[in-house]
Nucleic acid binder design. Structure first.
Lengths: 148, 148
DNA sequence: TATTGTTATACTCTATAACTATA
DNA sequence: TATAGTTATAGAGTATAACAATA
């Protein structure tokens, strides 16, 4: 039956709470610590996704970012206005569109990565080596969890 | 000088990106997966904080949740309307107030913990033991990071 | 004067519902 | 009929600015 194991260890409840509260508070701070004031966290995330995938349709992006299609329409429009993405016709389906990042987006991402790294590194400077290693290991798992 | 170490390892940039994107997406999903539809994530977080600290002033809560004071005023008012917190006069400073959780909040938190645990456990069921262990270890570090 | 908290107001992000065009 | 995307609209959550009460 593939039952979810609800009682792995006794302290899982505490871990779930800490995870939720940590994620929520950190996300609130990340919103403020945006590098480019004119780009929302989701816009940044979309650019990151495009950098990895090369290109995607608005629908695919909406599913990946866990956002509703109308929200993605708006986000893509904003990114296009800033010349960070380009919209091309879909080769096989005239209903769909292909979203692709521009060279400008690539440059901006590089710049933004540097600044963000500095900010988080400064924050992480208050962590000891073990704690940082834990976090680094957890990062990909968090991403996986967010996608499930 | 206590310089932040910007170059701990070469893959830190990737880790920072994964951490940010994972945190943002997970927070978006967490918002939807709220147990009690009538309670926002921050309201839940405030209740969690109060459960740990016993009591706090609105100002302290705003700082802990990384929210501006006017936002906390509103949140506390909403919680009070739901009879989940009680406001008492501050014993030494008549400008301040003391926010304290009610018995009702305690019961609700217990109920909510159970449901959330089930939801996250189901999600975490798709992770293997190692991944879950990593996440459990990372949870307190995430909280620490959010507080820095 | 400085600080705590509140009121009034506006903004950002996202959602839902209804619509258009294409499959 | 079903699907991809858009338009119009509303709502939730937070912020900033201006203010009141107390220190």
């Amino acid at each position: 039956m593939n039952m979810p194991d609800l009682s792995r260890t006794p302290d899982d409840t505490a871990a779930v709470n800490a995870l939720r509260s940590g994620v929520m508070r950190l996300s609130r701070r990340l919103k403020h610590q945006r590098v480019d004031e004119s780009l929302s966290p989701t816009e940044m995330s979309v650019l990151g996704t495009l950098a990895r995938c090369g290109s995607a349709t608005p629908g695919e992006l909406a599913r990946k970012e866990h956002v509703q299609p109308p929200s993605m329409t708006r986000i893509v429009a904003l990114l296009e206005a800033k010349e960070l993405v380009r919209l091309e016709p879909h080769p096989e389906d005239r209903r769909q569109k292909v979203v692709r990042q521009t060279e400008r987006a690539e440059a901006m991402l590089e710049e933004s990565r540097r600044k963000r790294n500095a900010w988080l590194a400064e924050l992480a400077g208050n962590l000891d080596e073990d704690e940082w290693a834990t976090l680094r290991a957890a990062a990909p798992v968090l991403e996986k969890l967010a996608h499930l």
